[in-house]
Write a protein that binds this DNA or RNA. Structure first.
Lengths: 151, 151
DNA sequence: GCCAATGTTTACGTCAACGTCAAGTCCCGG
DNA sequence: CCGGGACTTGACGTTGACGTAAACATTGGC
């Protein structure tokens, strides 16, 4: 793992991600994001991977509108999958491995479906907006015509 | 306006939209959705247009994640535009009309940009999901291979 | 005209996701 | 080694979007 580097202070991480330090502490409290390390005195020190994880959380929150509990479930599932691949996963049967993978695939499909649905609705919404814009432009044109006549 | 028909009771509207009656009263309190009419005794009676408006509100809330204040701003702008087109808009100068239309177009563009951004992020997200799915499937295949060897 | 279902207003409760002190501790450039 | 800024752990406050309960009024089918 290239010697657990965790150089970033909470304030810097917060600023980079566009949130406050309170948010980071809150996410830690919920078990969503624990800093990879600490300073000698006990201050939080975040790794690059932590930052990536944070951005992931914010993406799920902002783009998908998931609540933090659901985000926790998703991240936990992925974490277990990652752990499964690396060391310390010897005592796990092939059957159990398959179960976990199947579970992950199911969750993945569920999310894909939700994203697809959202995409469809958003595209329809965009269509509405464009239609309305056209109407507005036409009305502006009418105004111009009237003005031209009135001149 | 084809004789203001407002036949729907609050409970029916709520059920159709998948919300509670409390939500409808709350939206009225915020000035988002006032029923088109009332029964002799004072019960709310909603029109078909009201239902459409409600669905619009819910779409903006669920799909775009806007808060109810912002939704109010959007709906108000549209309402003023609609009013502008119909009767009782005589005392409004061409200049003012043009201003309002320009404002509406600006708001429209703003929202289009937001939707575009959301679409882009969602598509990227979907790509990630598909990629992960492929990885999962590969790992399942590896498991199968191991199992075949182990047999 | 009755009465169960549905509606009305008023008001307090709740829950997530933080915001905001307070009172102390840590970090690090000069 | 020292001082101002950043960080720590509590703890309580806030805000949006409703939920819920009480006490009473309306509605509409029989």
């Amino acid at each position: 793992m290239s010697a657990g580097e965790a150089p970033y202070r909470i304030g810097d991480v917060a600023q980079r991600a566009g949130v406050t330090t309170r948010t980071l502490r809150y996410y830690q409290e919920l078990g969503l994001l624990a800093p990879a390390g600490a300073s000698p005195g006990g201050s939080r020190r975040y790794s690059e991977a932590d930052v990536v994880r944070l951005l992931r959380i914010l993406e799920l929150r902002n783009v998908m509108g998931f609540d933090l509990d659901k985000i926790g479930v998703i991240l936990n599932a992925e974490d277990r999958l990652t752990a499964l691949r690396h060391e310390a996963a010897r005592g796990i049967s092939t059957k159990r491995r398959r179960e976990m993978l199947d579970e992950a695939v199911a969750l993945n499909h569920q999310m894909q479906a939700q994203v697809q649905e959202r995409l469809a609705v958003l595209e329809a919404f965009l269509g509405d907006l464009e239609e309305k814009e056209a109407v507005y432009r036409e009305r502006v044109a009418e105004l111009g015509a009237v003005k031209a006549v009135g001149r």
